[in-house]
Design a protein around this nucleic acid. Structure first.
Lengths: 355, 355
DNA sequence: ATCGGTGTATGAACCGGTTCATTAGTCCAA
DNA sequence: TTGGACTAATGAACCGGTTCATACACCGAT
């Protein structure tokens, strides 16, 4: 018993052809009960644990699994509420179709390349703010269905995104309509270089991440329409994890007179609200805050967060469908919608001494 | 061009043997640069995207991926802090080894069976409170390395757990040492039937989930040593998600005179602290709370949570190693340790009118 | 001239199944 | 008795690669 038994061995032991043995396992109704019985007995006797998926796979062609390329450290990935909801939506569809999900960590480019080349999947979903061009390239080379989320992969691949610019415009528009004139922006990463802190004009224009850039443009649109140049608005760049608190503090230090904060994610917005509370600044009495994404937490905070809703879970569902529905790559732009809750109000009537 | 090109086609087009073509891709140093060049050119011309992992897989035997069997809905899975840290530890090792992670949702038994039987993985990690005997059975049948976490799979499979009973004993012991005498317990699910709310003696003794039962035993040990019978202690069973708030409220209603709450998870403990705050009960001044697990959130709440630390990420790392290190199945019991932070203090000096 | 290396390419044997066109056998009706 | 219809089982052709023993050519050393 040097090697594990295989289907052929079982078949021989049961005195049937391999094809019959295969049927006994996969299409029992095609095989006489008595024979099936015999095959199963031989299998037990030989310690055969059922057909090896590796073999089946080769024949079947389809793997029935979708690879999710994760750019961040998986620890962070599991922590981020956006990813959570996205994955929940995606896995909903996978569950339905009985498909699996493979997490492909793309932390370092070297091993990521190998992983992407060898991942046994039917297609890839890349969910990255990161430029990730190289990874997209790699994935495309495998000629598998491929969907990018929130980052335009160019023609030849699926693309799911939202109208970031419009959402941002609505967020800023809402605050303007309330009467706000002094803004501050807490931005997501503009470039993948790990830099955080105050953003000058040059860096702002160098924004590489698509959603960050578009949201910035959207804010700018609305502000410009009200005669405010975004160049005058203090902007701070922050990571979207536990470091968000630091970003929020930096922003409030930098813009003590702002009456409204435009945060590019709910995580950031919540950090701002917390930081404000810590400083005794009333939200929304003295400071209005608008988030972005409308993650589950947004509705649960006190006060509940005014934010731009985007259909995160739907993005996940759509991504899964785009992988499994054969067909030409599609490009989908999902709607956004401002959700007004409790963190926005008119600015305080009494300006704190601004010239 | 009815079918996609395969390695054999590329080889023929380049005028080399298939073996050489294979080497050109996988072991370039074994092939003359000029020939490799030619192979690559043919590949491009034929639109060949590199060797198909499905083929390689069959030959290689190893898949280089580990299947994580998830009992809960994936949405919940991604939400739970315990899972997050566990997965972070597990994926740390996988990253190191360049291995992938397959999420296998085992929500409904029927499709779960199929998924487990056909998952292309080198081994399974089952992380379930659920009895899940059936799934364990299925996984075992595939004769793949197999590790169960927090649930004894019996001989023939790996097992990672902690000394739940001891941890619980220490938690209760700490409160007793502080002088507490009136306890209440907020328990995780005892049985997988979805029932929640007050627990009577009968149900307590029927506890099926291993960690729940052991923690209950541990609490009982310590209390008994102090002359308190666990039969007199109000116990409420609760889900470990957003419903935890409900459980906490039920418990405080049921045991208004308790000065100390033993919570079986940090999520539950935090829910108790929040509920207490909402009712104007000071923690730890009027009510002490001890959690279990020591998830990341535990140290970040105000006040920081006194809890029983268990090495969650280490469990994940160990699980991954046990899958990839060939060898006989091991059984590991990891240490726990009481971490005293800010939610425990001596009981209020003035008993509220107890007989 | 012979021998032992070294560097490349070849062919064929796997890897472990699934599938499908046939064949063999059985039953019933004409 | 023949034919048609239906059920079971067979055998061989894939699925797409990797690997390894072998062969060949060319080299310097003996």
């Amino acid at each position: 018993m040097a090697k594990a038994a295989k289907l052929a061995d079982v078949a021989k032991a049961a005195g049937v052809s391999q094809g019959t043995a295969s049927n006994a396992f996969n299409r029992p109704e095609l095989v006489r009960p008595e024979v099936r019985e015999r095959v199963e007995a031989s299998a037990r006797a030989l310690g055969y644990g059922g057909p090896d998926p590796k073999g089946r796979l080769l024949r079947a062609g389809k793997v029935n699994a979708i690879g999710v390329v994760v750019m961040d450290h998986l620890g962070y990935f599991f922590r981020d509420p956006f990813n959570r909801e996205f994955m929940a939506g995606l896995s909903e569809v996978c569950d339905e179709l009985g498909a699996g999900i493979s997490l492909i960590s793309a932390m370092d480019q070297k091993s990521a390349a190998w992983t992407i080349e060898t991942a046994v999947v039917d297609g890839f979903v890349v969910q990255c703010l990161d430029q990730g061009d190289r990874l997209i390239e790699l994935a495309k080379r495998r000629k598998l269905p491929f969907v990018a989320v929130d980052l335009d992969p160019g023609p030849g691949a699926g693309f799911i995104s939202i109208d970031d610019r419009r959402g941002a415009r609505e967020a800023a528009g809402h605050l303007l309509a309330l009467g706000h004139r002094r803004f501050a922006i807490l931005a997501l990463e503009l470039v993948g270089d790990g830099r955080v802190g105050p953003v000058d004009r040059e860096r702002r224009l160098a924004a590489a991440y698509q959603s960050t850039r578009d949201r910035l443009l959207g804010y700018g649109d609305a502000l410009a329409a009200a005669g405010i140049s975004i160049d005058e608005v203090p902007i701070v760049e922050s990571l979207n994890d536990s470091e968000a608190a630091t970003g929020a503090a930096t922003l409030l230090d930098l813009a003590p007179h702002a009456t409204a904060v435009l945060a590019m994610s709910d995580v950031l917005a919540i950090a701002v609200v917390n930081e404000a509370r810590k400083r005794g600044i009333d939200v929304p009495g003295q400071l209005s805050v608008v988030g972005f994404d409308d993650v589950a937490e947004a509705a649960a905070t006190t006060p509940p967060l005014t934010t731009v809703h985007q259909p995160i879970a739907e993005k996940g569902r759509l991504a899964a469908h785009m992988i499994f529905d054969r067909g030409p790559p599609r490009r989908e732009l999902l709607p956004v919608r401002l959700v007004i809750r409790g963190t926005t109000a008119p600015p305080p009537p009494d300006p704190p001494t601004a010239p």
